[in-house]
Amino acid sequence: MYTSPHAIFGYLFLTLTVRVLARRPGAQMTAFEFVLVFLIGGVIILSTVGDDPSMTNCFGAVLAIVLMHRLVTFFKVKSKRFSEIVDGRPVVLLKDGQWQSDLMAQLRLQDTDVMASARTKGIPKLKDIKYAILERNGAISILKDKK
């Protein structure tokens, strides 16, 4: 009886927690952040399923979560504002050779995080980056300076 409300509350609570935690868990997870995701997931499972591990109960929880996800996705497409709240907006971290320091500090990101992304694009030096953008999914996009 309590499984569906627990699953729905768990979904909403986790969405809020992960959203305010920072955008990093979306991509570029370090081992330290990996632990966080596993731990939070495990704890929420305990309160959702409780002492009833029956298939009926677990299927009920899965269906409630899937339904919530579908609803959130539906409203994200319908409302730009809702989409911003759930997924955020891109943030420019580096522009024309200038770090956007206060934004980086707020996002708890370091130059090494940007450089890690740059290396995957074959860019070996920070000076070769024209723009570094933190995307909504947590990835850092790098645009090369063409000069």
């Binding site: 911003e84 955020g88 907006r89 891109p90 943030v91 420019v92 522009k95 024309d96 934004l103 723009y131 953008i133 645009l143």
Partner: peptide, 15 residues
């Protein structure tokens, strides 16, 4: 866009 060249969709006021 930023610098009128890259379409990013940044909104610092919202941020």
């Amino acid at each position: 866009k930023i610098n009128d060249e890259v379409a990013v969709g940044e909104d610092l006021q919202f941020q």
